[in-house]
């Protein structure tokens, strides 16, 4: 790809992802409202569609306050890490054939590495705030990630074995015959759990846990820095949904429509699933989440990997 083409692609992806995140804020608020017998924001623009814009204007005008007890440099850096890490991961995501900014042959590993960066942002945010609630939140985030990163990678091992590649484009192409959600159903289930935990949303929003920890790791954040966490969450959902699509739902593959349309549609369905889950589930306790990770998901992921490998060997 020419350098100019790459720059266009980068800008396109960036604008696409950020507008998707903005739209997602609206979708989630109206969607939750629909599920909860209320209206949600419906005043700004038609159907309240301009609400995210109004939110952004408001949040930019807010005082961007750094508490005196905080570690200033780290406090400022943390939200950038969260948003930056998540956005950077989109470099390896391909919305259509040849549409990846960086079509790495270790794309999957790059995703695992980059997405783990986000937890540094959360942990540092809680630590640098110098607030006990934030600290508890970031400790939860750190231990949640330690527990879930492990089997997230193992769950994806099945996909890698079947595709015979770490490259995301090749993984999609390998699903021409059947989407991996069929042979890798168990892997998908485990990956979804890990992915949900990665996004820190209900039922895995323990680092935030409003009723327990006020606002957890971002209790002390306001203004644009809070906005980065906020947008980072929605970018994160979009990312995870895009990856579920890539790894298990055949990516851009599909008849009649252009590939990008298929990719966007599948991602949107996964995102809506996340929203419905948020409306439906309570929050488990911290130790229960960790126990689920180590006692259930990790063994399952290993078994899944072994079975996949065994079956593939037998077929050869």
């Amino acid at each position: 790809m020419s350098p100019a083409g790459t720059i266009v692609l980068i800008l396109g992806t960036l604008i696409g992802v950020l507008s998707a995140a903005a739209l997602l804020i609206w979708v989630e608020r109206r969607g939750l409202a629909l599920l909860q017998d209320r209206l949600g924001p419906n005043r700004v623009g038609p159907l309240g569609l301009v609400q995210p814009l109004a939110d952004m204007v408001k949040i930019m005008l807010k005082e961007d306050w750094i508490p005196p007890q905080a570690d200033r440099a780290v406090f400022v850096l943390a939200p950038m890490l969260v948003l930056g890490g998540t956005l950077a991961t989109f470099a390896v995501v391909a919305a259509g054939p040849g549409l990846a900014i960086a079509d790495l042959n270790v794309g999957l590993l790059a995703f695992l590495a980059l997405s783990s960066l986000g937890v540094y942002g959360v942990a540092l945010a809680g630590w640098s705030s110098n607030n006990k609630y934030s600290l508890l939140g970031s400790l939860r985030a750190a231990s949640q990630m330690v527990s879930y990163e492990v089997f997230m990678g193992l769950a994806l091992g099945g996909v890698v074995l079947m595709a015979g590649s770490f490259n995301l484009t090749e993984i999609v192409e390998a699903q021409r015959w059947v989407w991996f959600c069929v042979p890798q159903a168990a892997g998908l289930a485990i990956f979804l759990v890990a992915a949900l935990a990665e996004t820190r949303r209900l039922p895995f929003d323990l680092p935030e846990a409003e009723n327990e920890l006020v606002a957890g790791y971002h209790s002390e954040y306001s203004g644009m820095k809070f906005a980065m966490f906020f947008v980072g969450e929605y970018v994160g959902i979009t990312l995870i949904a895009a990856l579920v699509t890539t790894f298990y739902l055949g990516g851009w593959l599909g008849p009649w429509l252009p590939p990008v349309a298929w990719f966007v549609a599948k991602t949107a369905v996964v995102v809506c699933g996340f929203i419905v889950l948020r409306a439906a589930l309570p929050r488990p306790r911290f130790d229960q989440v960790t126990a689920l990770g180590w006692r259930v998901c990790l063994p399952l992921a290993i078994v899944n990997l072994l079975v996949t490998g065994g079956v593939l060997l037998a077929l050869e």
């Binding site: 939750l32 439906a280 309570p282």
Partner: peptide
Amino acid sequence: FAADLGAMSPVFYMFT
């Protein structure tokens, strides 16, 4: 009570 356990929706139904 449901909200205390992290469930987001029930409180809206019961208040309705």
